[in-house]
Design a protein around this nucleic acid. Structure first.
Lengths: 117, 117
DNA sequence: TCCTTAGTTTGATCTGCGTCGTACCGTTCG
DNA sequence: CGAACGGTACGACGCAGATCAAACTAAGGA
């Protein structure tokens, strides 16, 4: 058992997805899982982002994203691995995740940076 | 005078847009302005949607959408007309508004309805 | 078997924001 | 001019949700 439930992609509504993405921490999470590409441990993926939150808060956000149909969770021994449902989400909401990819973490400065220092 | 300020489309960030669209009333507003197509009076556009809010609340939502770069406001005599910045927004966030168009008002029921009673 | 580790659940707290009422501002018309 | 109308600005209120700490569950390893 211990299989983690998730909604079928056809039942996912745009309202729920937008609400899920409206939180800065969850937006960071989605980008991080996207960057990771493969199954990743949720508590590791925020390491480089500078976001520091309690583990129960992280668990809460993971659940919100999963219920919104954006990520998938798999049980692997003692830990849980997470991956972005990229293809499914893109199939249902074309351009959404691509958008997040291209418009990276909101930089306060300009739009056309010379490089990434 | 009385020209209404709005952000240049290049300065609009995805974070702000997502936050703006995360509210059900504002989502309804955007869909209604999209359906209207042309310059429309803000206080008229909700008439058919069943959404009933005070005029100060409407003014607040209009401002949030305008600050997010999604709509544009023009002064016309005694009233203010609003229009969706469709092309600009689609140019900057391809697929976003198309998404809202195709995934209409969240119906609680199934995905493939026989008709619209 | 017991301890450690990873994660969820629960309960409590607190801040953000959607809402409203009222006052205020600008435009039109009598 | 002054009244009526459309809309904004300003406080105030209340609720949803983000956060944390602590208790609980489950899997591995000594």
């Amino acid at each position: 058992m211990t299989e983690v439930i998730e909604p079928a992609i056809e039942t996912v509504t745009i309202d729920v997805v937008l609400s899920a993405l409206a939180d800065p921490v969850r937006l960071t999470l989605v980008r991080a899982f996207d960057a990771a590409g493969d199954w990743t441990c949720g508590s590791d993926v925020l390491k480089d982002t500078g976001v520091a939150i309690g583990k129960s808060t992280l668990s809460h956000h993971i659940k919100v994203l999963r219920d919104a149909g954006l990520i998938r969770t798999r049980v692997s021994g003692i830990r849980r691995l997470v991956t972005l449902r990229y293809d499914e989400v893109e199939q249902r909401f074309p351009g959404l995740l691509t958008m997040l990819r291209e418009h990276g973490p909101a930089r306060a400065a300009a739009e056309s940076p010379a490089s990434t220092p």
